[in-house]
């Protein structure tokens, strides 16, 4: 049993990381009061941008890891730029945030494949080489923890975990975090206190775009290896994690690990007979079912931001 867990755990972590960063992005958007169901589309944009940049730069610096890092950075940047569409519609035009998010998903899915087809013909962009898994020296020889967390791992994993720590700090220990949360709970009061609600919400959505773009690109440079025009529902799984984690960073960490582990077990169960005791279908629907159950259980005491989904109208008190 232990060997099995040790076998799977690195894969589960690899799968969890894009989920985690995307859900954290969603956290910033939703805590500022803007629902973002466009996470899936923003991930697609990130995967596309990352693949494109890495593909183009590959000739300049063959097999140099810096290319991958530039790709990730570009993905985050373009994710943020693309999320401006959602921010503009939902913050400035008081549009329905669900419709706007749906439009983001659809535009991202169609436009990226359209552009990719113009460039490569097939609509897929294959990168020559992604990040290689490695064992962290020294740390990987720590008993138990070393085997679980520091073997067969990617450099991106630690970057994202670092971002998680920074997020917790920013959200709960800085002025910006306090203001962001205030805008999601009671924007009128926040405005009365002199906060520019529009600006804060723009920041929230932009961060969600950057993080989701990063998530899509990380997925592409670690386990996917190519851009295919979709991220197979990972963005929606991130949304489920955000809800199941009750809009809190550590809750999200737990939820994404939980869901990542379940999905990984389902994915590898075909090659590992010991895992076939649980039918993969149950493992795959599990995140969504438990999220529904959580919604029911927390329906009275939900930690969802109070003003979520409501366009801000400073004249309304």
């Amino acid at each position: 049993m232990w060997d099995l867990i040790v076998d799977i755990f690195p894969y589960a972590v690899i799968y969890t990381i894009p989920l985690l960063i995307t859900a954290l992005g969603g956290l910033f958007s939703e805590r500022s009061g803007v629902v973002n169901i466009g996470l899936e589309g923003l991930m697609v944009v990130g995967a596309f941008t990352g693949a494109l940049v890495i593909f183009q730069l590959h000739d300049a610096w063959t097999n140099h890891p810096i290319v991958l890092w530039i790709g990730l950075l570009a993905a985050a940047l373009f994710g943020a730029v693309f999320s401006l569409l959602h921010a503009f519609a939902s913050i400035h035009l008081s549009a329905n945030q669900i419709i706007s998010g749906t439009a983001i998903n659809m535009i991202a899915g169609a436009l990226t494949v359209f552009l990719a087809r113009n460039m490569t013909g097939s609509g897929n962009i294959r990168i020559v080489s992604g990040f290689q898994p490695f064992d962290v020296p020294l740390l990987s020889s720590i008993p138990v923890v070393g085997e679980l967390l520091f073997t067969k791992t990617y450099a991106t994993t630690y970057v994202i975990l670092l971002i998680l720590v920074v997020c917790v700090f920013v959200l709960y220990k800085t002025k910006f975090g306090l203001r962001l949360r205030a805008c999601g709970e009671n924007p009128q009061a926040a405005e009365a206190a002199g906060i520019n609600v529009y600006k804060i919400r723009y920041m929230g959505v932009l961060i969600s775009g950057a993080f989701a773009g990063l998530g899509g690109a990380i997925m592409m440079v670690t386990f996917a290896g190519e851009f295919t025009g979709s991220v197979a529902g990972l963005g929606f799984l991130a949304l489920a994690s955000l809800i199941f984690g009750q809009w809190r960073p550590l809750g999200i960490l737990g939820a994404t690990l939980f869901f990542g582990f379940a999905s990984t077990v389902a994915n590898v169960s075909q090659v590992n007979p010991a895992l076939q005791v649980i039918p993969p279908i149950l493992l795959k629907v599990f995140p969504y079912v438990v999220t529904l159950i959580a919604l029911v259980l927390f329906s009275k005491s939900s930690q969802a931001p109070k003003a979520i989904g409501e366009p801000f109208d400073s004249a309304k008190r």
Binding site: A103, G109, F114
Partner: peptide, 12 residues
């Protein structure tokens, strides 16, 4: 995919 793009942009 131009058709899909147009529809998506119309929604926006």
């Amino acid at each position: 995919e131009i058709a899909d793009s147009i529809i998506a942009i119309i929604i926006y």
